[in-house]
Design a protein around this nucleic acid. Structure first.
Lengths: 230, 230
DNA sequence: GACTGAAAATGACCCGTCTCAAGTTTCCGG
DNA sequence: CCGGAAACTTGAGACGGGTCATTTTCAGTC
């Protein structure tokens, strides 16, 4: 399996590659490599020099930070179709600010930063797309900071669940957690025990049903009121 | 007092304006306005449509979020020379993700987003500077998330104080808090009472001396060991 | 230099979440 | 289909930081 076999169409599905010409896309592809990871394998580590950014094709990647004591905080769980680490090439030092590890066997495309920077110089349109992507992430991080500072564990969980609900959903939805509960717990900055208890409480109130990684939300409007968000 | 009287030099000190031609800078200036705020006055509110971004010339601006219950989380305290809200023009919806309020009488330059976007289309170099600025902020936010998730109140305070130390400082430094302690407390996601207590504890240990808003760090290496950061 | 309201400090108590220690269930590889 | 490890749940107890109430300090100001 080789990068060359990936269709233009698939690559262009990435917002930051959408606006590229045939020729530019060709260059990007030539600089790219296909990467396969087994469960638990690391893609990069915090502090490592960044030479590539990525698109996940299949599997699941966890971005996280480790404290000196070894405590882990999951910053984000990447799913197929998402790109990540595009912003690192603009940081001074160009070092990954987080570590990335495969939660399950995964396949990704690794794009070369140098090549992409070259193309950015030729395509203002693509610059705009990169800026749009970065601003989205920036806003997401601010939301996360607010959540950590102003919301308790239950609120954070409820809002997280609501964020997992598909756009077109009605008053009820069934969602599947993108990772084991202990990873979700870290993503929410809560201990696994606490997550388990909160899930139980919400079940008791009849708001949700939990079956392994599958969670059914029985009354989304009620949960929204609970979460108190737009 | 009028925007026209601001020197090119002062404007170019802003990284995102450094690379502009004489003519482009002229256009930016023509789209800009000078804004004066008295203490407590708001520059914009969370959710408001964003038509401008800003450079602070004098004073101090606090960027913050409010919970539905009215609790406040200070995201950042802006100081003279800094620009902010440049990323908002790329967000979908183009609404400010935070509120901005003057902590003291302040003066700022308000740049027109539409004008600036036009210039970005002409200057890839400026796009790169915007991306660099955004990536810095992104990393800062990730650091903040880690701090909230993995560090206790004392650690957050120590690291905050260390962040205030000038580059050229030796083993000791005197710093001045950029805002009243209750604002710093919110910035650190701690109650004012708790901040007061922690400050007191660090004094007791002889690590710092507190005199109003002025804090003397007596042993920066020891504080670094304490904070446990690079 | 006394007056006043805001900011800060202090004490007592409380609560949400963590920690530690067992269970229990689920999921795989053989 | 079995055995073992990992994931998850549950209970008991501890603790960091929050809350509330009160006092002290300080910056202006008349």
């Amino acid at each position: 399996m080789d990068v060359q076999t990936i269709s233009d169409e698939e690559l262009r599905r990435l917002p930051v590659l959408t606006a590229l010409s045939e020729e530019q896309l060709g260059r990007v592809r030539r600089g790219a490599r296909l990467v396969q990871l087994v469960e638990g394998e690391h893609l990069f580590e915090h502090g490592q020099k960044a030479e590539r950014f990525f698109m996940l094709r299949d599997g699941r990647i966890k971005l996280y930070r480790l404290s000196p004591e070894g405590d882990e905080k999951v910053i984000e769980i990447i799913r197929p179709g998402q790109s990540f680490a595009e912003a690192v090439m603009f940081m001074e030092g160009k070092r990954y600010p987080v570590s990335a590890q495969a939660l399950v066997r995964s396949e990704l495309v690794a794009f070369d930063n140098a090549t992409f920077l070259q193309i950015l110089r030729e395509s203002v349109e693509t610059c705009f797309r990169v800026m749009a992507a970065m601003s989205m992430r920036l806003r997401a991080r601010v939301n996360e900071i607010e959540a950590l500072a102003l919301q308790n564990a239950t609120l954070r969980l409820v809002n997280y669940l609501l964020g997992e609900v598909p756009e077109n959903a009605g008053d009820t939805a069934e969602i599947r957690l993108p990772a084991p509960k202990n990873v979700i717990a870290s993503r929410l900055s809560v201990q696994p025990e606490t997550l388990s208890r909160i899930l139980h409480q919400l079940s008791d109130k009849g708001l949700i049903t939990v079956q392994g990684r599958t969670i059914t939300l029985h009354d989304i409007p009620a949960l929204r009121r609970y979460g108190g968000l737009a």
